[in-house]
């Protein structure tokens, strides 16, 4: 029974034409989000693997959000905001960089590839950079393959869990 399940999942992955990474982008309202808009206005083409979540400032991006995205199975997370000197809130980007250093260490320690997360400073004028970074990131992650935490399997996998629970008979101490 178990074997069969494994086989079908294998087939499933085989029949998938190509691995399409799912990448979360946090972009600040003042620089990187408008840069993404400008990439659109200028019709710069980039792969459709990213979903942009707008925040007011990069400083708002709690490392906890990035880790949660990874837990939920994101193949990559990009945190993008203003250059230090352009930061709308003057200190937010600097603080974000501080937090990001911690995050990098944690992600490294957990054994995830460092390329899965990325911090970028992209001003509103640097829309080609935005498109470039997205292209690079998609390519890099395609090379790495799906996240080891694929599809939020760890988050909600009710069936598997209940099986485990049944397997183990409670032991009275």
């Amino acid at each position: 029974m178990e074997k069969k399940v494994k086989e079908t999942t294998k087939q499933k992955t085989k029949s998938k034409p190509q691995f399409e990474p799912r990448i979360v982008v946090f972009a600040c309202n003042w620089c990187s989000y408008p840069a993404a808009d400008a990439a659109g206005i200028n019709r710069l083409q980039y792969p459709a693997n990213v979903r942009i979540i707008r925040v007011m400032c990069m400083g708002r991006v709690d490392p906890g959000f990035v880790l949660k995205a990874l837990v939920m199975g994101a193949d990559g997370v990009l945190v993008s905001g203003c250059h230090f000197e352009d930061c709308h809130y003057s200190f937010g980007a600097r603080k974000a960089a501080e937090q990001y250093k911690k995050l990098e260490k944690i992600v490294h320690m957990l054994g995830l590839e460092k390329e899965r997360i990325r911090q970028e400073f992209i001003s509103a004028a640097e829309f080609p950079k935005f498109a470039k970074v997205v292209r690079e990131m998609v390519e890099q992650i395609k090379k790495l393959g799906p996240s080891p935490l694929e599809r939020g399997a760890l988050y909600k996998d009710q069936k598997l869990e209940s099986e485990i629970i049944e397997e183990v008979a409670p032991v009275t101490p």
Partner: peptide, 12 residues
């Protein structure tokens, strides 16, 4: 701590 510690154990 923004749920970081919970996420760490989940990623493990």
């Amino acid at each position: 701590h923004g749920g970081i510690l919970e996420s760490i154990s989940k990623i493990m």
